[in-house]
């Protein structure tokens, strides 16, 4: 067993884990964070996507011990003070899910995409989500949801004048900023 200390969704955990434990297993089975799901055995589907120190990773393709000393954000940590993250709202409003299995990973990857590129083209959205597979929607409404969240991010950034030096909206990336502040 190896002792690890990880900050997950703003809470610090210290646990003994078997080194072979995958990060996704640790999140689901030890911490009960079942919002992060497993969709494949080959690291292709992206359903298990979480953020490690603010960047997206496939949590099925990492050991829990590799997260030692790092910050993890899961889909369960995106909403703040009972308010959905703008991407969660956009996925809901745009009907960007059917069975919903791919959704946690889609939203976490979309969040990473908008952090690096707050105003993506349709093509950039499709490419940014290339590591996330959806068996139901045909992707159309997922792309629309990301576009809506990007638009909202831009508007709220402009209205409140809270954009950063590059004019990036700050709201969308709130979760990352909390992470970034301590990493």
């Amino acid at each position: 067993m190896t002792r690890i200390t990880v900050n997950v969704d703003g809470t610090k955990y210290s646990d003994e884990v078997e080194p072979r434990t995958l990060l996704v297993q640790y999140l689901r089975e030890s911490l009960g964070k079942t919002g992060t799901v497993i969709g494949c055995d080959t690291s292709n589907c992206g359903a298990c996507t979480v953020h490690l120190d603010g960047t997206s990773v496939k949590s099925c393709n990492m050991l829990a011990v590799q997260a030692d000393g790092h910050e993890v954000t899961t889909i369960e940590g995106l909403a703040k003070n009972g308010e959905l993250h703008p991407l969660q709202t956009a996925f809901h409003e745009c009907h960007a899910l059917q069975c919903g299995y791919c959704t946690p990973g889609m939203i976490m990857q979309s969040c990473d995409l908008l952090k690096n590129n707050p105003d993506p083209s349709e093509q950039e959205i499709r490419e940014g989500l290339e590591g996330n597979l959806c068996r139901c929607t045909g992707y159309q409404n997922i792309v629309k949801a990301v576009q809506q969240a990007a638009r909202q991010g831009k508007e709220s950034g402009q209205q409140s004048g809270q954009g950063d030096a590059d004019g990036n909206p700050v709201d969308l990336n709130e979760a990352e900023q909390t992470v970034g502040a301590t990493s």
Binding site: T55, S56, K58, G128
Partner: peptide
């Protein structure tokens, strides 16, 4: 190479 998540690691 691969996808953004895999390029991060």
């Amino acid at each position: 190479v691969a996808d953004p998540q895999i390029r991060h690691r």
